[in-house]
C-alpha cells in the first residue's frame, strides 16, 4: 500500500507519544488527533485519549465519532489541573514558531494593536512550562517558521533557559511535525534540528520553507512509512471519511 502525505504525517505525529506510557495524549488538529489514537491502538496502548470533549474514551474512537463507552471524565478544569500535574503530553498548533520553539497563537503584529488578532494564548504558556509539548503544523512555510514570533504564547528553549533550572525543570519540547518533515530540539542550545524529511521532500525544500537556520546534521533520513496495519487502522477504523486529506492535500 502506498501512503499519502497525510498518512505519513499521522504516523509521524503518533511517534511523538512513543514511550509515554499512561498519560493523557492531548491533541489539536486532525492528523495530530488521529496520531494520538493510532499510537494508542498500536505501540503505546497505555495512552489516554478523549472524544474531543470531556470524555476519556474506553477505546480510541474514530475521528468525530461519539465517545461510546467511557473510562474517565476530564472537563476543562481537570485538563488545566492535569497540565500542572504533568501527566500529559500535548501536541498543539502554532501560527508562528521560531528557531528555539517559541510559538504564537495569540496575535500577529504589535500586540498592543495587532494586525491580526488570533485566538489568544489559550493554555500554551502553561502547557509548555508544565508538561511535555509537541507541535503539529499542517502547512510548513516561512509565514509560520519565522525568525522571531510576535507574541510568545508557548515557551521555547531559550526562554526556558533564562528562567533557570528550577522554574524550567518541567519544560520539555519534544518534536515538531509538519507536512514536510519532523524536527526536534536535540542540540546544545535547544535550536531546532531537522530529524527527517517526508518521502518526496528534499532538505532544500524544507530549508526554503523555513525563515531561520535549521540545524542539519549530515545525511537526513526519510520519515518512516506507515506499516500496512497502521494504514488499515487509519483508513478503515480511525478516519474512514478521509478528513486527514482536508488538512494535508495529497
Amino acid at each position: 500500500m502506498i501512503a499519502t502525505r497525510a498518512e505519513i504525517c499521522v504516523v509521524a505525529c503518533a511517534e511523538a507519544w512513543r514511550g509515554d506510557g499512561e498519560i493523557l495524549a492531548a491533541a489539536m488538529g486532525t492528523c495530530s488527533i488521529l496520531g494520538a489514537r493510532l499510537a494508542r491502538l498500536t505501540f503505546e496502548p497505555g495512552l489516554l485519549t478523549t472524544d474531543g470533549g470531556a470524555m476519556l474514551t474506553a477505546e480510541p474512537v474514530p475521528f468525530g465519532a461519539p465517545a461510546g463507552p467511557v473510562e474517565g471524565w476530564m472537563p476543562f478544569r481537570d485538563h488545566l489541573w492535569l497540565v500542572q500535574n504533568g501527566r500529559r503530553h500535548v501536541m498543539m498548533g502554532a501560527s508562528q514558531i521560531d528557531r528555539h520553539g517559541n510559538t504564537n497563537i495569540s496575535a500577529v503584529g504589535a500586540w498592543e494593536r495587532p494586525k491580526s488578532q488570533l485566538l489568544g494564548v489559550r493554555g500554551a504558556p502553561g502547557n509548555t512550562i508544565c508538561n511535555p509539548t509537541s507541535y503539529w503544523i499542517p502547512k510548513h512555510s516561512t509565514r509560520v517558521f519565522v525568525p522571531k514570533v510576535d507574541m510568545v504564547s508557548g515557551v521555547g528553549y531559550d526562554r526556558a533557559a533564562e528562567l533557570g533550572p528550577r522554574a524550567s525543570r518541567f519544560h520539555d519540547l519534544r518534536r515538531v511535525v509538519t507536512d514536510l518533515g519532523v524536527f526536534d530540539f536535540g542540540t546544545p542550545d535547544g535550536a531546532m534540528r531537522l530529524v527527517s524529511t517526508h518521502p518526496g521532500v528534499t532538505v532544500e525544500q524544507v530549508a526554503a520553507a523555513t525563515g531561520f537556520d535549521l540545524v542539519i546534521d549530515g545525511d537526513v533520513p526519510e520519515t518512516r512509512q506507515p506499516t500496512d496495519e497502521e494504514l488499515r487502522l487509519i483508513r478503515e477504523v480511525l478516519d474512514p471519511r478521509s478528513l486527514r486529506d482536508r488538512e494535508v492535500r495529497a
Binding site: 497540565v83 500542572q84 495569540s106 500586540w111 494564548v121 493554555g123 500554551a124 504558556p125 502553561g126 509548555t128 512550562i129 508544565c130 507574541m151 510568545v152 504564547s153 508557548g154 515557551v155 526562554r159 526556558a160 533564562e162 528562567l163 522554574a167 524550567s168 518541567f170 519544560h171
Partner: peptide, 13 residues
C-alpha cells in the same frame, strides 16, 4: 502561585 505564564509574553503584556 503557578508556573503557568512564566517565560511567556503574558508577563510582557
Amino acid at each position: 502561585p503557578t508556573r503557568a505564564g512564566l517565560g511567556s509574553d503574558v508577563l510582557r503584556v
